[in-house]
Design a protein around this nucleic acid. Structure first.
Lengths: 112, 112
DNA sequence: GTAATACTGAACCATATGGTTCAGTTTTCG
DNA sequence: CGAAAACTGAACCATATGGTTCAGTATTAC
C-alpha cells in the first residue's frame, strides 16, 4: 500500500458508489436533510447517514445540525485534485500516442 | 443501490487505490509485465495480478499473454466518462454559486 | 405533557478488498 | 532432459462496505 494521496483514495472511493454520486448531484441543486436524502433514495436514515459520512470524510460535503435536523451541503472540496489527476493521466496518454505517431512517421520515411 | 452507471462504479473504485493509480501512470510511460509491476511496487505476483484484473475489469488496461509473460498496456478506456462526470458536477456547482450571487445582488438592491 | 419527527449508535449480516502463501502449469534456457 | 522464470488459482486472513434493525436521545408540534 502506498502512503501518499490519501485524499484521492477517499474521494475516488466516495465517487465509486452510484447513490453517493447522485447525492452529490442532488446537493448541487439544493441543500437537504438526511431525511430528504433517505426519502429520495428509498433508504433508511441510518443507511443514508453512513453515505453522508463517507462524503464528509472525503471533504465533499459538510453538515450542520440545526434543531433536530442535520443539513447537508456541498463543500469544501470541489473535486479539483481528482480532475487534475485524470487530466494528467490523459495528457500522458496523448503524449505517448504522439510519440507512437512520430515513430510510425519515421518508420515510413525509412522504408517508403 | 442504484442500477445504472456500473462503469463509473468500477472505474472510480479502480482509481481509489494508490497502487492502481501508480500502475496506470507507469503503464502510460511504457507497457509492462506482471513481474515488472510486482517488482516496481514490491508486491507478490499474485497481488499485482489482482490489481491488474481490477483495472482490466474497469476497461482501463488490456493484457495479452505472450509465451510465459503477460503484457499489460493501457486501454481501451481513457477515463473520459469519469472526466465528464466531474466536469458536470463542477459546472452545477458553479451554476449554483452564480444563482447565489444573483440572489445576493437582488437582496442588496431590495434593501440598499 | 404527550406524541411524532429526526437523528444517532450499536450490533449484525453478507459480500468485497487487499493482501499473503502454497501448490501447481507453462515456457524458456542451458 | 532438468532447472529456472512467469504466471495462475485456491485458500486464507483481516478489515471495509453497504446495507439492515432496534433501541435510544433530542426537538418540535399539538
Amino acid at each position: 500500500m502506498v502512503q501518499f494521496s490519501r485524499s484521492l483514495d477517499t474521494s475516488f472511493a466516495a465517487l465509486a458508489d452510484p447513490t453517493r454520486r447522485d447525492v452529490l448531484l442532488r446537493l448541487a441543486r439544493r441543500d437537504a436533510s438526511i431525511s430528504d436524502l433517505a426519502g429520495a433514495f428509498e433508504m433508511t436514515l441510518t443507511g443514508m447517514k453512513k453515505h453522508v459520512r463517507v462524503l464528509e470524510d472525503a471533504g465533499l460535503v459538510t453538515t450542520e445540525k440545526v434543531g433536530r435536523v442535520r443539513w447537508c451541503r456541498l463543500g469544501p472540496r470541489r473535486l479539483d485534485r481528482e480532475n487534475e489527476w485524470i487530466a494528467k493521466y490523459q495528457s500522458m496518454l496523448e503524449a505517448r500516442y504522439d510519440r507512437l505517431g512520430e515513430f510510425l512517421e519515421r518508420t515510413r520515411e525509412d522504408h517508403p
